[in-house]
Design a protein around this nucleic acid. Sequence first.
DNA 1: CTGCAGCGCGCGATTATCGATCATAACCTC
DNA 2: GAGGTTATGATCGATAATCGCGCGCTGCAG
Lengths: 257, 257
Amino acid sequence: MTTNKPDLDRSDWIAGLEKGIRIIEAFNDAHPRLTPSTAARRTGITRTAARRYLLTLQHLGYVESDGRLFWLTPRVLRLGWSYFDSAKLPRAVQPHLQRISVALGGATFFAVLDEDEVMFVARDGSSLVQNVGYVLGARISANLSAAGIAMLACLSDDEVDRWIAGRRFIQYSPYTTTTVEGVLECIRKARHLGYALLEQQLAMSVRGIAVPIRNREGKILGAISVSLHMGTETPEHAVARALPLLREAEYALLSTF
Amino acid sequence: MTTNKPDLDRSDWIAGLEKGIRIIEAFNDAHPRLTPSTAARRTGITRTAARRYLLTLQHLGYVESDGRLFWLTPRVLRLGWSYFDSAKLPRAVQPHLQRISVALGGATFFAVLDEDEVMFVARDGSSLVQNVGYVLGARISANLSAAGIAMLACLSDDEVDRWIAGRRFIQYSPYTTTTVEGVLECIRKARHLGYALLEQQLAMSVRGIAVPIRNREGKILGAISVSLHMGTETPEHAVARALPLLREAEYALLSTF
DNA sequence: CTGCAGCGCGCGATTATCGATCATAACCTC
DNA sequence: GAGGTTATGATCGATAATCGCGCGCTGCAG
């Protein structure tokens, strides 16, 4: 239960903190409201303990309850805000996103790898896909977004193999690549070109172009992507329009970090 | 230290969870990186304990460290995402924000009251103010945003008095209202009109118009606001343009919740 | 009517968390 | 460059905070 990470601490390990976080993360689309029992089942904590954690969160204002069900309040956004307020990176990226989305008429994103998924950290412009407005913190399988492919392309073969191991590719659109070889080919291509181009993986008629963002030591900090309507534009033309702007942001950030 | 909230629990109170959250929230713009000692001072936790919490967060991946300093990782956004993924409200609001920002050419926000500040929960469109892209979770004093005034206008006189008590109004622009009477007048006007109109409180040449969002029982869920460049447009004209769209969203949400 | 499942609550056991303390390292200040 | 000051990681008992079993209750469904 206490998933002591590889490099183990003796026991400066606050079990209560881990469990509390697990409780918060137990809420999602499919489980917007939890009873102590359900929360316990979803987190592997005992029912009595889960109830204690929920009550604590309630008194802290992070959770509300009608006495039976518990649900998250907007206050949990404070935690995410602590990151935005403290981290230089998203703040440095934002003006670039703004510039690119205005110039290209698409939605731009800054994403990072979180565990083996892509997580969206910053955004500008209106989303092309209906109802996808508040993607900050959202995570999807890395192969589904251009930003994810751009970052995977920066990993070594071993790391890619490890990423791909035991992964199942879900079909989101008729054009989603769902074979290991297909995804590998896509990564190889991105590695060769130095940018990623993805079409209709997640939604129809949407094309994504992304470049990885590194710091001076070469460490991957994330990726900037732009989503464009495909329309009648050729891939080559879209890349020709988008890539210079993405590269400009890439170089500007490279020299900053 | 253990701020047992008014209605006390016997002791289903997980101290570790509260402290861990306090540690996360100790990071901000002025303190992007913390040592165990600084974290301890900022949170009121002892140094040894603060170090334990930071190490725990590190092993959970929410914090990174170079051995001396600790800083938050984007992973904390997961927590905010739990709210977005689970709550119906921001998801229901988003399409309206999108529609309004496209129609009016401004940035739209959905905000709630968190303690006595305004917190931004959802957004659409590009910000008018430079470098303010990732406002989700950001909090400002309620009197500085139209959304805040719109919500304050829904409170009783007693509640407004309690909100205003001991509050100091900081000057952000030459036009910021910094007197108690000025802010009260602003609230009264919004209460009378049923919407809030604010100009140049936080930034020059920006005008905000907001309406409160209630549910069927009349409880305030939040407020929708739109930020517009003032330009040469009269306030009356801006209201005439914006208010119907805001009202439309208000009624749509009223019937949903 | 009668199971079943979920619920709050109390209690005793234990173990996880605390913080004083120390030696060392880093940091200023002069 | 040296001495004073402060921050740091590690250790270790004491203790109180957390645990989870078990009770009796409720509400729902068969």
